[in-house]
Design a protein around this nucleic acid. Structure first.
Length: 284
DNA sequence: CACCAGGCGACCC
DNA sequence: GGGTCGCATGGT
């Protein structure tokens, strides 16, 4: 990996599309605050920073370069966020004799499981229930504009305004009506009770990480069932062995595995396999 | 403009 | 315990 610094950020060479593919990663339904602008640049918010990334093959080069609007010193944060520190090699035994899985993996290579904030993931996946992805994105955007902190990022004299994801404390002090005005509908009390549970310490990342049964503990939250709990554990706690079963995955289980899929054989990287399958089902 | 969206909780037996 | 139904809302 070779990193070059420019006035607006860095260019990283040496990461092939099969290791990192931004389009697949941001489109596979794990995150809701990344959008591709007209110039092909992915824009997203990580914590209190507006991050831009672009991946492209330059003239005369065979491998893509990755451009990011951070300095060299902050590259490690992006590297971690993109989970490039984790080895995604799936053992042969897992897909041997399973031609469907083999092609899903081939088609999905380059997807990363982002290391997202736990609280943001919890709220996002509570909101996701019975919503489609455009609706989830717009609802979360409204939530951030209404309750998040406003930031201005200044890039080469151009100012960009953006909002952070609201804290649990801030949402805990919101009213049911305020949340419904955002478009949360019947999920408003779910978000409110999660905000209270997190702000008063009933639920915390540290406690959950020590827990023997993360899914059961998450399911004690109002509005969190098996699907949301698995998504929160996978995307908000980086538990890569989780395997959320949504409508798309259950279609795959029915159509490709005759309604019977033994998830335990996927092992430690089950969640990654779930993402490969999801991407393969929706976009291939 | 119906239909449906990466569900969940309450309620039923 | 497992199956069924209502739920708010906006995107397509």
């Amino acid at each position: 990996m070779d990193i070059e610094e420019f006035d607006w950020g860095i260019v990283v060479r040496g990461i092939p599309y099969t290791t990192l593919n931004l389009d697949k990663t941001f489109d596979c339904g794990q995150c809701f605050r990344w959008n591709k602008n007209n110039n092909g640049i992915w824009e997203g918010i990580i914590g209190d920073r507006l991050i831009r990334m672009r991946q492209a093959i330059l003239d005369g080069e065979s491998e893509p370069v990755l451009a990011v609007n951070v300095n060299k010193a902050d590259w490690n944060k992006i590297y971690t966020y993109l989970d490039l520190c984790t080895d995604y090699e799936i053992r042969k035994e897992v897909y041997e004799g399973d031609s469907y899985l083999k092609s899903a993996i081939r088609n999905g290579l380059g997807i990363r499981i982002l290391r997202q904030d736990f609280w943001e993931a919890l709220v996002s996946f509570i909101i996701s229930q019975r919503n489609n992805i455009p609706k989830i994105k717009s609802t979360i955007d409204k939530l951030c504009r209404a309750f998040g902190d406003k930031y201005i990022s200044n890039e080469n004299g151009v100012e960009y305004e953006f909002y952070s994801f609201p804290s649990a404390e801030r949402l805990a002090s919101a009213t049911d009506n305020e949340l419904r005005a955002i478009g949360l509908g019947y999920r408003a009390p779910y978000v409110l009770s999660a905000a209270r549970a997190v702000s008063n310490g009933d639920i915390s990342l540290a406690k959950l990480n020590d827990s023997i049964d993360v899914i059961s503990e998450l399911e004690e939250l109002n509005g969190v069932g098996p699907k949301v709990a698995n998504c929160v554990a996978l995307f908000g706690m980086h538990k890569l062995d989780m395997f959320p079963i949504d409508i798309w995955i259950s279609r795959i289980i029915n159509d490709k595995y005759n309604g019977n899929l033994d998830i335990s054989r996927f092992g430690k990287l089950a969640g990654l396999i779930q993402q490969y399958m999801f991407y393969n089902e929706r976009f291939i």
